[in-house]
Nucleic acid binder design. Sequence first.
DNA 1: GTGAAGTTTGTGAACATTCACTAACTTTTA
DNA 2: TAAAAGTTAGTGAATGTTCACAAACTTCAC
Lengths: 195, 195
Amino acid sequence: MQAFKMSKRQQEIIDCAGKILSKSGISGLTTKNLALEMKFSESALYRHFKSKGKIIESMLAYMEHDMDQRLGEAVQSKDTPIEQFQAMFSSQFDFFSKNSHFVVAAFSDGLMEESRAINQAIKKIMAVKYKHLMPLIQTGQKQGDFTDKIDAKQLIHIVMGTFRLMMFKWRMDDFKFDIKKEGDKHIQALLTLMS
Amino acid sequence: MQAFKMSKRQQEIIDCAGKILSKSGISGLTTKNLALEMKFSESALYRHFKSKGKIIESMLAYMEHDMDQRLGEAVQSKDTPIEQFQAMFSSQFDFFSKNSHFVVAAFSDGLMEESRAINQAIKKIMAVKYKHLMPLIQTGQKQGDFTDKIDAKQLIHIVMGTFRLMMFKWRMDDFKFDIKKEGDKHIQALLTLMS
DNA sequence: GTGAAGTTTGTGAACATTCACTAACTTTTA
DNA sequence: TAAAAGTTAGTGAATGTTCACAAACTTCAC
């Protein structure tokens, strides 16, 4: 929504915030470090954002918008549910391997505690994924590509849980292993399991 | 290991720490709040622990020990892999529904960032679960109870991911919904999927 | 038994540091 | 020349931690 109204400088700031986030985590994301990374003073931050919280909110809002668009395109690019499923996660892995800082932002519960607004922004990101996954799973179930022995909701829960744990492990490993390769394995395993 | 060497007072302190953790999250777990909950001064804390970090480490070490024992008992109480699988998670849900603060302690990545020692303590807790799950899955695969189309490792990943996401949602919901009931549904869904 | 010595568990005050944020002033830019 | 973007220098509040000290209890010597 408000991701469009961002100035170049604001974009740079949330990029830096992301860089810090993936490097030192939430506890490292301080106004001091952010200013340091931006190579200007702390107070200069407040020329561009009203508060630190707003910076994080903007980052999450931008991420939500971007993810929504990307997932939409990924789904549209394919015809069958299985291909769409693969395309969705392929797109996700691709995105996160290029923007690993968003992994911390979106899947970190430490951030969750900061404020009500941030908490809700994270929920919205989860909802976006759900939104794109649900119709895909449902038509897949109708066509017999996926099991209908299990509720679509629960299927999505399992899929999203598997994905989240991958991101968690990847982050614990300091983003060292190849998330695309490792990720595709798990997605393939999920597909095998779901059919 | 060192969970045995704890004094009663130390036990009380980590209990209070847990209470705070589940009520106000990591950011609420300050020496001030902890002392407040203990109804004594902040400095008294340092009569029992060398640092705040050591308090958290002790809590996690205690949890690891406790979980190891509980999971071992759960597995031993049953004979077939499927029953063992169910017993394991039933035990987990039971435990967490009584000790919801451990959910925050064990599944919060915010805590992860605090120190190397804490990070490793969390990894050890994950390893404990893995240790109990692996032989169970493997014999289940040999006996034909579970699919062998998928690697045991990946199967465990999917199971643990599903479990973690449940805990995450439960915590986001402020521990309101019935984790035992909701949890059993997911476990049943997993069993359906895995056979 | 009684007093000296030592331990445990607490207190309140201070500590150095970090945090997000602000006011007043100066420089850059269009 | 006026707005936008930056600086310097500060704020109060919160953080974890250490300090000297004291009350209550146990241990031990005479």
